[in-house]
């Protein structure tokens, strides 16, 4: 089915007894892990930031990065990654409740979407972001950022550019991870570091990058992303319940920061 690519669809699983809810199931009878990760839904940054806010006092204004006068990348791949970064920055700006920056980000989202040829899919949401930022309606801004993310990715799929859709997700995840490790690294607790335990997402991105067309993979930025995923994976992909160390948090932050810089390289 065509929409298996567009909409995260489930896969065959173990049968369960009908009409009752088993207290335990045999997860080993699921398909291979490699198949499972094909259907991963990438969380929006606010999903992680909200959890972090519950275990740590975060000064989001210190994490927020100014985005005014953001230059547009040279390749479509680079622009897709940039768009993911900027939308993630929008979620950070909402956490910081910074109206001016949210409005800047709304404008930048339009600019990058135009460069990708999908501006019409975000105009309504970008306008809603600007309006809601003025009203300090942060719940609506978050919702519109998620809609923007979804609509742009959908538009890319509609244009037959699934790889670019995935790069938008990757860019968003990277900036979210950079912000998360920045915060956790400055005020480390094992509980906050646990939020980095996202092995299925790392595997998902690694697999997606590996399967991209040669025309996209030849871009040095994509090569950087692949190497970065391999570096991060062992640091956060530890077994469930295993503590992620302060050293690992800082190492992930170094890699994520390097990759974000790589995305914005040659255009700043």
């Amino acid at each position: 089915m065509k929409y298996l690519v567009a909409v995260p669809i489930a896969f065959a699983a173990a049968s369960l007894a009908i009409g009752e809810t088993p207290q335990k199931i045999d997860v080993s009878s699921f398909p291979s892990q490699a198949k499972l990760i094909d259907t991963v839904v990438v969380p929006v940054p606010s999903e992680i930031f909200g959890a972090l806010d519950r275990v740590s006092r975060v000064h989001w204004d210190q994490v927020l990065r100014a985005t005014k006068d953001q230059a547009v990348g040279e390749s479509q791949s680079q622009i897709a990654l940039q768009l993911g970064l900027i939308i993630a920055e929008g979620f950070i700006a909402v956490q910081a409740q910074n109206t001016a920056e949210v409005k800047n980000i709304g404008g930048t989202v339009r600019k990058l979407s135009k460069a990708l040829g999908v501006e019409k899919h975000v105009t309504e949401h970008a306008n809603a972001i600007l309006k809601s930022a003025d009203a300090k309606d942060w719940i609506t801004v978050r919702k519109e950022l998620d809609r923007t993310l979804q609509n742009v990715r959908t538009a890319m799929l509609d244009l037959g550019s699934e790889p670019l859709s995935q790069l938008i997700s990757l860019g968003g995840w990277l900036r979210g991870t950079e912000a998360l490790t920045d915060v956790v690294g400055k005020d480390y607790t094992p509980e906050s570091a646990e939020l980095l335990h996202q092995p299925i997402l790392l595997d998902f991105f690694h697999k997606r990058l590996a399967s991209m067309p040669a025309t996209i993979k030849k871009n040095p930025v994509i090569d950087d992303m692949q190497k970065g995923m391999l570096e991060i994976r062992p640091l956060v992909g530890v077994a469930d319940g295993t503590q992620i160390s302060e050293r690992s948090v800082k190492d992930v932050n170094l890699v994520a920061t390097r990759l974000v810089k790589s995305i914005n390289a040659k255009i700043n």
Binding site: F11, A13, I37, A51, R54, V55, E191, E194, I200
Partner: peptide, 11 residues
């Protein structure tokens, strides 16, 4: 049945 693997965050 079908199964979906999904990332959840404590908190």
């Amino acid at each position: 049945t079908k199964a979906i693997v999904h990332q959840l965050f404590k908190g």
